[in-house]
């Protein structure tokens, strides 16, 4: 196989980040730390936040909602 034409990165990295609920082990300490992130003194770029919101909403609408096929 031509190593230069191999396409090993075509898969979406978000797939590898999904978690199986049945394998999920989260300690109360971890959840507390996650919730404490609400208080982190850091602000994301509002532009980034709104752009991501739009992108996700378009995804939701086309995959879960009225725009998706009625299969």
């Amino acid at each position: 196989m031509d190593v230069l034409s191999r396409s090993k990165l075509q898969s979406d990295p978000s797939d590898e980040n999904a978690v199986d609920e049945s394998d999920l082990e989260v300690s109360p300490e971890e959840l507390r730390e996650f919730l404490a992130a609400d208080l982190v003194e850091v602000q994301a770029s509002p532009h980034f936040k709104e752009r991501l919101r739009g992108k996700l909403w378009r995804f939701v609408r086309s995959n879960y909602g009225r725009d998706s096929s009625s299969s």
Partner: peptide, 18 residues
């Protein structure tokens, strides 16, 4: 962005076990 994308891509399979 990767995190939210993974969340919304997988929402359909979330069964509420956790």
């Amino acid at each position: 962005q990767e995190t939210f994308t993974a969340v919304f891509r997988s929402l359909g399979s979330f069964r509420g076990q956790s």
